[in-house]
Design a protein around this nucleic acid. Structure first.
Lengths: 358, 358
DNA sequence: CTCCACCGTCGAACCGGTTCGACAGTGCTC
DNA sequence: GAGCACTGTCGAACCGGTTCGACGGTGGAG
């Protein structure tokens, strides 16, 4: 391999001069600078990353810790990963992807060995085992996902509570009186997927405040369960005229379910999901949704992370906790409720009698 | 940070002795070995990755080059990535994820700077710009995807030709006489996505050999185009009784299309896709499919790559080109053809008159 | 008892960069 | 014309590991 010594020899200068000529950290005569640049180009010189890391104590690599659980919807994760990776590259950083099941051990490995200058954690749980390690690590960290204790790191997430309220309010404005909410699988909640109940609690509260009947359920993340469960929910609550989905798999399965039941949105049922526009287009999902903005969140996390890495002043700034406001993308799947959801006989319009607002 | 010098001092030995005690590359007395191990554990010693890379000329990192094109179906890529990443970790390697648009430049960067010990290329095109660079690089490389010239690297891919023949033969055994094939968007082919025409050519040939009528079309990769195109195809070829899909987006959109037309598989139309079982479960796809085995392919690529990295004998072994045989996963979406696909009036059973086999 | 082999340990060199301090040479000021 | 500041370059040290060659000490063979 070609080293800086080779460049120096070719340019007829010392190694240190070659280094300064390339980095520009000291003034170097124009002739020497040119000779060094020419030599580097001709010999095809690329600095050895390990040697540079050793000398400068920085690697220009960020760690990306993604955890994949069997009961979660993996494809949604890809968009976060791309947001992180693309932004990192734009800022001159490479991305070390870690998908190890034991995220805490992996985090310790890459931080202790100084493989990375900073770390982005995806899919952060309420009480995330990786967090204490990250706080103790010498490298800064940024999270996508809000943990119970956000201290010591920069946190970025969708404002799930506001998203829940926006969903309910949208339905309320259209005069819906009874809604179904399908959340993520209960396992996700048990594991600490706080965003599930952040949205759910907000939906429940806002529905109560608006005098709207609400049926909240956890949905599976896989077929055929998720389709079966959707059928069961619609069977169980025939008076519900609106469906809120905080579950990508349920959204993906819903078109088949609706068609099987001869229902159409928004004629028979209004539907709002919570997923990205990219996701909707890729999977042919015709439902309005609260944009989850994975690429944006990944990008924000990396930008803040890199600022903390490179700007010595930024290292001691107070940590940010940024919840991006939800944006409802209208794909025309909501409208006024039908008088009764099914044309079938005897379905009462409001069997729950929760009444309207005063 | 704690270095091997700290360990050596704590254990009362020299740095070299500490190194040998930890690596076991020379015989060391049991007492010293124990003292060093204790010191390392108590002080929480982890070797500095950069220093080790500099000294040993290996990083224990593999590069993963994934290219995302706007007109391709991104989620399918995730499974390849996980296959690579998980297997690499199992073998003691970390994964440097590169999603840069200019894959050739990225490849040069990570190989020249010795950030990686080897490279896996995903989504390899017929005439892939990254390939000449990879052959010239000092690190070994493995591909997922078959290029025009597979020399100098290990290649792993699904046997798309065999997959095409298997699809046709399956339909032929069920006595279908007219089929539609939906491939990837034409842009994918133009860019060099050889797998598209490897499957398509095989389907065309095998159909001709079996005396089956075939309508081959490129499908878009996004909604709403893909749904519209499926409708148009079914309109244009009312006599076709079987549908072959080499296009994930089309498979994802098909359930809605079928329901909208009042068709059911396999009663009215037999369907075979080409995607992974994981993919089918995640996206609620009820169609039989040729398993594309992304995790397996990623795993094979990494295993061979690591063997070439670590085994000095393996470096000079002839390169392998492994096409894994297709496996048809039966989800019950194929059956005998109906006498006519639609119950509507006047659809001739075999308007193309290609006739059966002798 | 001597010689030799082997075991366990150490010091030094090396990997390929970066950076600090020194210093020769130049041009300016007074 | 002496003193000074500044510019451009160099040598050496350092980052934190690994590894080579040397060497003292021990035990066994002859």
């Amino acid at each position: 391999m070609v080293t800086i010594g080779d460049i120096a020899r070719a340019a007829g200068v010392s190694r240190s001069t070659a280094s300064y000529a390339l980095s520009g950290k000291r003034s170097i005569s124009a002739q020497v600078r040119q000779r060094v640049a020419d030599a580097a180009r001709e010999l095809g010189y690329t600095p050895n990353a390990g040697a540079r890391a050793l000398a400068t104590a920085e690697t220009r690599v960020v760690g990306l810790l993604a955890q994949f659980h069997a009961d979660e919807f993996a494809p949604a994760m890809l968009q976060y990963m791309l947001g992180v990776s693309d932004t990192a590259r734009e800022l001159g950083y490479d991305t070390l992807l870690v998908t190890e099941a034991d995220g805490a051990r992996a985090l310790r490995r890459i931080t202790d060995s100084r493989m990375v200058d900073g770390v982005v954690l995806l899919n952060v749980a309420q009480d995330d085992a990786r967090l204490p390690l990250l706080r103790a690590a010498p490298q800064p960290g940024a999270l996508v996902g809000l943990p119970g204790d956000p201290s010591g790191v920069d946190v970025f997430d969708l404002d799930f509570a506001a998203a829940g309220r926006a969903m309910v309010d949208h339905m309320h404005r259209l005069r819906h009186r009874e809604l179904i909410l399908v959340s993520q699988p209960e396992h996700v909640v048990e594991r600490g997927g706080a965003y599930v109940w952040r949205l759910q609690d907000a939906v429940v509260q806002q529905a109560a405040a608006r005098g709207i009947g609400l049926h909240a359920a956890f949905g599976p993340s896989r077929q055929p369960d998720v389709g079966r469960d959707l059928h069961a929910l619609l069977d169980a609550h025939p008076a519900a005229t609106g469906l809120l989905l905080n579950n990508e798999a349920a959204a993906a399965a819903l078109p088949s379910v609706l068609h099987a039941r001869g229902l159409r949105a928004p004629r028979d049922l209004s539907v709002i999901g919570r997923y990205s526009d990219e996701f909707a287009r890729t999977f042919s999902l015709p439902f309005s949704s609260v944009e989850s903005a994975p690429d944006l969140l990944g990008e924000m996390a990396v930008r803040h992370l890199v600022r903390r890495i490179t700007d010595p002043l930024a290292r001691d700034e107070p940590h940010v906790l940024r919840l991006v406001p939800p944006e409802l993308v209208d794909r025309g799947s909501t409208g006024a409720p039908p008088t009764a959801r099914t044309a079938g006989p005897g379905t009462p319009p409001d069997p729950h009698g929760q009444g309207g607002r005063p």
